[in-house]
Computed example of a mutant assay.
Amino acid sequence: MPGLLGFIPWIAYAIIATGDEWRWGAITGLATALVLVVIDRIKGKNWDEMVIESSAVVFFAIITALSLADPDSPLTMYGPALVNLWLAGTAWGSLAIRRPFTLGIARSMTPSDVHHRPEFYRVNVVITAAWAVAFTFAALALTWVLSVAPHATAVVITVKVVTFVAPALFTGWYPKHLRAKYRIQP
């Protein structure tokens, strides 16, 4: 799924960042996000197709600066929750300004004659809301887990995986479901 490539910096951070080495995760996330944005711009992608990548640049620039300035920050252990809090803010913010972050990605993958249909916009509102809910749930669950059991690695990984895979699957399923339901040809 091409739209999921924008999550590579976030996934890289999740894999590399540990309680002791969040600096390397932040630096890797920032470098990866910058590379993705540059490659996407060279390919001619519009900014609305790169909301998650652009958001990653800002987040990882802040986290990199923080992790270098204060490597032992108490925020270190909450890195996974902070990622999801930021992503939730990005998703909810895109809905608040009436530009769901999935809209630009969907436009790049669909015929232009459907882009101005209200149904097209509504599908993207629903999909973006699904991601926003998943990110919000993950942020809350990870904050709680990391507060009561900071070394519960298996639980943290499970929350991360489930709250990423569920909206990703929904993103693939929902438009197909609507096309089948209303007998619309792709």
Score class of each variant (00 low, 15 high):
134 A>S: 14
124 N>S: 03
120 F>N: 06
124 N>K: 02
105 I>K: 10
130 A>F: 02
115 H>P: 10
123 V>C: 01
127 I>Y: 10
107 R>N: 11
126 V>R: 04
112 S>L: 09
116 H>E: 14
106 A>C: 10
127 I>L: 13
126 V>D: 01
127 I>P: 01
132 A>M: 01
110 T>R: 14
132 A>E: 04
133 V>D: 08
108 S>P: 15
129 A>S: 07
105 I>C: 10
132 A>P: 05
118 P>Y: 01
129 A>G: 04
107 R>L: 09
105 I>N: 09
113 D>Y: 15
106 A>Y: 08
117 R>G: 04
123 V>D: 02
131 W>C: 03
131 W>R: 01
131 W>K: 03
104 G>C: 10
128 T>K: 02
127 I>E: 05
131 W>I: 04
120 F>M: 03
108 S>L: 10
124 N>H: 11
114 V>E: 04
117 R>L: 08
110 T>A: 14
134 A>E: 07
125 V>K: 00
119 E>Y: 02
112 S>W: 09
129 A>V: 01
129 A>D: 00
132 A>N: 06
126 V>P: 05
126 V>A: 01
122 R>T: 12
115 H>Y: 12
115 H>I: 12
129 A>P: 00
117 R>A: 09
121 Y>S: 03
122 R>Q: 09
117 R>F: 03
105 I>F: 11
117 R>V: 09
128 T>A: 06
107 R>V: 11
104 G>Q: 13
128 T>N: 05
107 R>C: 11
107 R>Y: 10
115 H>M: 10
132 A>C: 11
131 W>N: 01
124 N>C: 06
115 H>N: 07
133 V>Q: 00
125 V>G: 07
124 N>F: 03
130 A>E: 07
121 Y>M: 07
130 A>S: 15
114 V>D: 04
112 S>A: 14
118 P>I: 00
119 E>C: 01
115 H>R: 12
113 D>L: 13
133 V>E: 01
113 D>H: 14
106 A>G: 08
116 H>P: 04
112 S>K: 15
112 S>R: 14
128 T>G: 07
123 V>H: 07
106 A>T: 11
126 V>N: 02
111 P>K: 06
107 R>K: 15
119 E>V: 03
118 P>Q: 03
108 S>C: 15
107 R>M: 14
113 D>S: 15
120 F>K: 05
120 F>I: 06
